[in-house]
Design a protein around this nucleic acid. Sequence first.
DNA 1: TAACAATATTTCAAGTGTCAAAAATTTCTT
DNA 2: AAGAAATTTTTGACACTTGAAATATTGTTA
Lengths: 156, 156
Amino acid sequence: MSSPSKDRLRLWLRLLRLTRHVDGHLRDKLRVDFKTTLPRFDVMAALSRHPEGLKMSQLSGVLRVSNGNVTGIADRLADEGLVERVPVPGDRRAMTLRLTPAGNVEFARQANAHEGWINEMLSGISAADARAMAAQLIVVAQAAENKEKINDPSHA
Amino acid sequence: MSSPSKDRLRLWLRLLRLTRHVDGHLRDKLRVDFKTTLPRFDVMAALSRHPEGLKMSQLSGVLRVSNGNVTGIADRLADEGLVERVPVPGDRRAMTLRLTPAGNVEFARQANAHEGWINEMLSGISAADARAMAAQLIVVAQAAENKEKINDPSHA
DNA sequence: TAACAATATTTCAAGTGTCAAAAATTTCTT
DNA sequence: AAGAAATTTTTGACACTTGAAATATTGTTA
């Protein structure tokens, strides 16, 4: 009793189970070791990759979360002095969000620990397998994302 | 510049990207097509696999979410007549949650659509590859989960 | 230039999620 | 049997998340 559809469903459930497990562990570690959360870490990681800062809309685009979501997280990070809002010269609507020096220091600590946690949890995969699997996932993800554009009437 | 640790980190980021993509698409479809949410679907799916019902604590254990979380979701599903709380004979503290007949009918519709969505999004993977990848993920997940028990003092 | 559309962000309401503490009940111990 | 400890669930406070509505600004166009 098996079909391509069932096989893919089972793969999805496996995938979900693993990512939820790792995700949950990361949340725990971030909370206990750094008194922060995964969404906050994600925001800081995105800003860390863009030292010049990102506009709020760019940030929500990169993280693939809603606009309003980022507002609240940025508020709380700003309260703690880890990020700052900088006005955009030519456009008084927009704000650029970027890490403060303190934010940079703090994120470096967190990112280092983060890589260690992942390495430990995924130690069941060899480096070669990890590379192979990642390569395969790129193909899968592209297929999944293209699937949508085909059904997206905004391109008609 | 590559290391086993970086390879695994990259794999994790790929994994996360794909699951978030699929996850988001499922949420959209559930919302638009069925006016429901993924957590509600998850609860109903768990109950569907246990027709005799599950105690609240068992349910949160299966779903790996907190106790208090399930309370709220169960409340809303019960309001709509999709699940019902049944007292446990020997224990007046506990409640068994189970699908109502209406809930069963509704979940069957949703589960059918759900399998179709997954099949479509993961169509970039052949059935054979899906089976192979799922098998590999089982190993990875077990390694990840065992890793914790080793560090868990509750087994000392 | 006045009206209208588009863009950038915030605010709002509702649902989801966590943890910690409270409430109710059961079980263990003495 | 009384009291303490353990179990089961709910409640409360806070954070995250979304989609939609509200604000403010910029761009377009008649």
